[in-house]
Amino acid sequence: MRREKKGGIIMSKDSLIKYRTAEERAAAIRGMLNLKNEWLDYVNKREVELGLA
């Protein structure tokens, strides 16, 4: 069951992701390691939107 509060969904036990295999977990770790690039793209986009780029 998802818990809600003002401002959005907050964590519940269902929020935690379970991986069935080591390969799935490895792919997730790889994804995490690439998150910074995703974040940098988002930062650049926000700076352009705000005219700060």
Binding site: R2, G8, I9, I10, M11, S12, D14, S15, L16, I17, A28, I29, G31, M32, L35, K36, E38, W39, L40, Y42
Partner: peptide, 16 residues
């Protein structure tokens, strides 16, 4: 902070 989607669907954030 950037929302994580690998450990949990809500409530976890990466710091960059």
């Amino acid at each position: 902070f950037y929302k994580d989607s690998y450990l949990a669907r809500e409530g976890v954030y990466h710091f960059f």
